[in-house]
């Protein structure tokens, strides 16, 4: 059986993590191909519902990457994102999917390496956790209708 390749969605703030992703590219850094980057105007635009529906679509992990504390272009968007991530982690724990599939990272625009590091770190974490029970394409989930409790 081929090794499980997680599918991870990274919601990245335009002012930091998304720019850092560009920088990582310019630097020719290798990082996990498992992540799918979604550009956000600010990490603070993330919402509870969006995270949950992303998981419902079957991704194995989600993270939100925002600016360092104090560096938010909109002053406090990242602080709010952190709180929302914490709230959704709680819901994920309660419904059995597990809050560890979701994370928030600070990735400043100037740190291409940090971007790559976070992508690799999250991929490794999700690989360890195994596929999301909602991921219909993952080996082992396909034949079981509805999957199993994580």
């Amino acid at each position: 059986m081929p090794e499980f390749e997680p599918k991870i969605v990274a919601f990245c703030c335009r002012y930091c993590a998304y720019t850092a992703a560009d920088l990582a590219g310019s630097m020719r850094l290798q990082y996990s191909p498992n992540i799918r980057v979604v550009e956000m105007p600010c990490s603070g635009t993330i919402e509870h519902g969006l995270i949950l529906s992303t998981f419902e679509k079957g991704v194995d992990g989600v993270y939100i990457a925002g600016c360092n504390l104090g560096d938010c272009h909109f002053l406090k968007g990242n602080v709010r994102a952190i709180k929302r991530v914490a709230a959704v982690k709680k819901i994920l724990d309660e419904i059995g999917l597990g809050g560890e599939r979701l994370e928030f990272f600070h990735v400043p625009a100037s740190e291409g390496t940090k971007f790559a590091q976070v992508a690799n770190e999250m991929t490794e974490r999700i690989r360890q956790l195994g596929p999301s029970p909602l991921n219909k394409n993952a080996a082992g989930n396909a034949q079981k209708e509805g999957g199993q409790t994580a």
Binding site: E47, G49, F55, I95, P133, E145, G147, T149
Partner: peptide, 21 residues
């Protein structure tokens, strides 16, 4: 509206995990 979507989503996931979609 937002809270309704979040709740529906959460319970849908929970039920899928319990093989009771």
């Amino acid at each position: 509206e937002k809270e309704t979507d979040v709740l529906a989503s959460a319970i849908r996931i929970k039920r899928t995990l319990e093989s009771n979609p």
